[in-house]
Design a protein around this nucleic acid. Structure first.
Lengths: 330, 330
DNA sequence: ATTTATTTTGTAACCGTATACATTAGCATG
DNA sequence: CATGCTAATGTATACGGTTACAAAATAAAT
């Protein structure tokens, strides 16, 4: 079923059908007649044809590390809903922190001629292959970065000030009297890890608490298992608090403490980062750093503005300041 | 940049470029020359053109109620990975249990001419609008249903035998000596709710335990808040166990018990359904019913087989038998 | 060297839609 | 009733690919 078939049934030309389907001027009576036929035949015009003719699609690519990581589903939901309202829809790709996977995904989206891409990964900053790819692609489509700060600002970036976040929560711990505070960042290779470490250090310095490198672990991944592993090590060292680079790590630490019969928060305080839903359900509920939800909406808004040409000019970086959420674990 | 541009640069015709891009026979030397140019220009052929010509896309629609519901992310990940390996990619739509949203999503996928659709929702069985839509669409593309049993079998369905699951876990509770077992199903309108209730009843009957309608709640949604609400009511009635229609409800019940100072599992046992990740982290860890992971892969496999014409014939329903996972809450 | 078979390449049509431009219909005006 | 004007519709082409078919180039066989 094509517009030609509809045209034949309605006794008009394909152009008239197209005009009915879009915004063209059509005599009300024929419009009605055509619409009735379209309805009856359950006809929906083929996007491939539309896209090909217009050289522009309504597809948006979403690049994330792993949808099964509990940080992302909520974000994806917000993005989905926002874009749907604006007439776009999502093509979706997991990258699992692999540069090669991310390349695959970006290539696929390139072929699909997505109107824009939302990148929530942060791989390949030092890699020679991914950044040039972004640069090239950004000439043909709009791209935004979401989440972590980037080294180079080639596209609009909506990032959370994790330095500030870590600073805030470390300061909070210091305020509650903790002095021997451990720190579990994730993998060294991420820029955000460095950021977070700085926030932690700034808070210590401000209170004249000596920085003890033995209390800091910058290795492994941002998941529960590493939280358990590093948590055990730090708890054995006798820290009185553990600041974690994300909530999953913190949950791991809580589990480790549980096994060691260490009471949280009485013996040791534990904090997370991200404020995932899980954190509020775990026992004790997680004290953590929440990134403002607006970051996602602002990002989407900006992306659409770029795509539809209402926003032009140099890429911007917009920094969102996170807030701490105090629950039971600290 | 199009194949014509590439053709010009390579001094050949567009057909040759197309043949290089696909599997056509091309002289090795020209093939190499063309590939070099394609590489240099970072050219990727426009899918719209390809799709339009072939009248078939590499897009798969995924229809789920809500990605931020923790049941789905893992499923989505499995689907994503499977499809990627087979050269397909995902277009994604949340429906929030709304027939109108689901219609929107299906219409969008219709326009996109997706090669197939994976439906993990279960709305509109009794509704007049959604099922006819599926039926029509299934003439042009492959569709599979994932998850719950359906009334009518118009497409392949990969479902979990929730009756059996509920039967098994209720039997387990009876084996541990529980006799006054409450039951929280979700909304009455879902077919699965009925199924689960039957499983619960079958187990009771088998052990000659009288069925007490007062212990059964068939209302509300499958989420934590309703778990808390109904949990409180059942706990106040003095049940010695609560069987829940899914894990979120069970977590809610655990939270309610916590507030009421009721000890789980000593005072009251609680069980869930689905085995989401969260269940293993909550305290006490959830005893629940796990649906086999294979259900998703089998579904995907079947979908691709249908799409690529290797599977034909009448739609099948494949029923997967769930297993119980015993942890701490029962 | 000529014929024949095979490999390689080119030409042109087509997929479904949008739209610039041309045409026709409808209507008011003098 | 011819004229001019606007509204409605039609015609034809382009978008970026693929592919049937034709043609040319090369290799093999006589």
């Amino acid at each position: 079923m094509t517009i030609y078939d509809i045209a034949k049934k309605a006794g008009v030309s394909s152009a008239t059908i197209s005009r009915v389907l879009n915004h063209g001027p059509v005599k009300p009576s024929t419009k009605e007649r055509v619409l009735k036929i379209i309805e009856k035949e359950n006809f929906f015009p083929d996007s491939s044809g539309v896209y090909l003719k217009k050289l522009k699609t309504k597809k948006i690519g979403l690049v994330i590390p792993d949808i099964s990581n509990p940080v992302y589903p909520v974000t994806v939901r917000i993005i989905h809903d926002f874009l749907k309202k604006r007439g776009y829809h999502l093509i979706f790709g997991n990258t699992y922190g692999e540069v090669s996977e991310e390349k695959d995904v970006l290539e696929m989206m390139s072929r699909e001629r997505v109107a824009g891409i939302i990148v929530a990964t942060c791989e390949g900053e030092d890699d020679t292959s991914l950044y040039p790819m972004f640069r090239r692609m950004s000439e043909n489509m709009s791209i935004i970065f979401l989440g972590e700060k980037r080294d180079s600002l080639m596209v609009d970036a909506f990032t959370v000030d994790s330095l500030k976040g870590m600073y805030k929560i470390t300061r909070y711990l210091l305020n509650t009297g903790k002095r021997n505070i451990g720190f579990i960042a994730g993998s060294k290779s991420l820029r955000a890890t460095e950021e977070r470490l700085q926030g932690y250090q700034r808070a210590l310095k401000e209170r004249d608490v000596a920085f003890n490198p033995d209390n800091v672990i910058c290795e492994g991944l941002y998941n529960i298992d590493y939280g358990k592993k590093w948590g055990k090590i730090l708890l054995e060292k006798g820290v009185d608090a553990v600041v974690c680079g994300n909530d999953l790590l913190a949950v791991g630490v809580i589990k480790a403490a549980e096994k060691m019969n260490i009471k949280i928060p009485d013996d040791v305080a534990v904090t997370g980062f991200d404020d995932i839903f899980l954190g509020s359900l775990v026992k004790p509920a997680l004290t953590t750093v929440r990134q403002p939800v607006d970051i996602v909406k602002s990002g989407c808004e900006c992306l659409i503005e770029r795509i539809e040409g209402r926003k032009t000019g140099e890429p911007e970086e917009i920094l969102f300041e996170p807030e701490i959420v105090i629950r039971e674990s600290a």
